[in-house]
Amino acid sequence: MRAGGGAMGEGVDEAGWDVEPGDEIEPVVQAVGRLLKVCREAAGVSVPELGEAMGYGEDMIRKIERGARIPRPELLDRADTFLKAQGHLRAFTEDMKKARYPKKVRELAEMEGRAVEMSLYSNHNIHGLLQTEEYARALLRTWRPAYSPDQLERMLAGCMARKSVFDRSPAPEFSFVQEEVTLRRPVGDTMVLRRQLEHMLEVARLPFVELQVMPTARANHPGTGGRIQVLKFADGTGMGRTDGDFSGRPVSNPRQLRVLDLRYGIIRAQALTPEESLVFIEQALGEL
């Protein structure tokens, strides 16, 4: 289940992304940079020659070689062939795929990748796992201070990569509850919202997904404290988070998880049924 739409932003350097200071992935990026330099020198290729062959400037190649820039996997693949590196550079393509996403996105994706059950309540925006690429892009552009084009594309790539969780076999069991306002707010514009709602209907019909809508008229439910997220893992442990308690930090203590389970259970019970919710979203589409 992939989100469609949206090309890479204009003006964004395609060679990779800057390393976030203090990111634990930094030593790996530095090692890849040193390896690129060793392979380049062993092949008798200068920095300008490699830059020209890869389609990038000399400064960008030097930045990658000193570990300040995360190279795109495609660049490593092409450089491996050009420098006759016998697969040594290509071996790091999977590591660089992970490294290019912001740290907080990698951490969330790792937990979602282990989850067998997800309960997700969203009260302000459509949940990230339900977002189309163009909706996510428009939403990221509203954040302040504003992302640079490079930062925005990196964050967007990470958000979209999380959606691979829908392709797992067996897939986790998903329960989404969305506040009505999230279906009404025209993030981007009306057509972006229309395609977003159409995508939600598609996701909602997956056999392992239950999507429910909480009508605005249902005022007396425990979702007023903000988003709720509860992930359950195969070993019986779990992780939860809410805007309202625990300083917004992830929690795994069984007592704290029971609090979140209780709140989510009440929210889910008070929301429209999955069948009623499909009708509600279709009606919202018809009003656009």
Rank of each mutant, 00 (worst) to 15 (best):
A157Y: 13
F174K: 05
F82K: 11
R66W: 03
E179V: 06
A85L: 02
I228M: 00
T237M: 03
M200I: 00
E133L: 12
V116L: 13
V230Y: 07
E10C: 06
G240Q: 08
S46T: 11
L206S: 07
L50H: 00
L108E: 06
L156F: 05
G188L: 08
G6C: 11
R34D: 06
S169K: 14
V259N: 12
L206M: 15
E65L: 03
V12M: 12
R241L: 06
Y147Q: 03
F246Y: 15
D189I: 06
E173F: 12
A217L: 13
R168Y: 08
A42K: 15
L257C: 06
F92Y: 15
R249D: 04
P254A: 10
E107P: 09
Q212C: 04
V213S: 05
Q178P: 00
G44S: 09
A31D: 09
L129Y: 04
R263S: 00
E179D: 11
E275M: 08
G265S: 04
V12Q: 14
A79G: 02
P186M: 13
R168A: 08
V177W: 04
I267S: 04
R40F: 01
K97Y: 08
I61D: 01
V181M: 10
G248N: 02
I281F: 01
V259C: 11
R62A: 11
T142Y: 09
Y101P: 00
A109N: 13
V230L: 15
G248I: 01
P222K: 06
L156R: 08
H127Y: 00
V209D: 05
E26G: 08
E26R: 11
E180K: 06
G87P: 05
S148M: 06
N123S: 12
L83C: 00
L76F: 01
D189Q: 06
T81K: 14
A161S: 14
M214S: 12
L129C: 04
A271V: 02
E275A: 14
G188P: 06
F176P: 01
E58F: 07
A271T: 06
P149N: 07
L278D: 03
L108C: 02
V116S: 13
M8D: 14
A115L: 09
M155R: 15
T190H: 15
A115K: 12
E179P: 01
R2G: 07
H88T: 13
G226W: 00
Q86W: 08
A234H: 04
P48H: 01
V29S: 11
L35T: 07
P186D: 09
R258Q: 13
S122I: 01
T132Y: 02
E52K: 10
G5S: 10
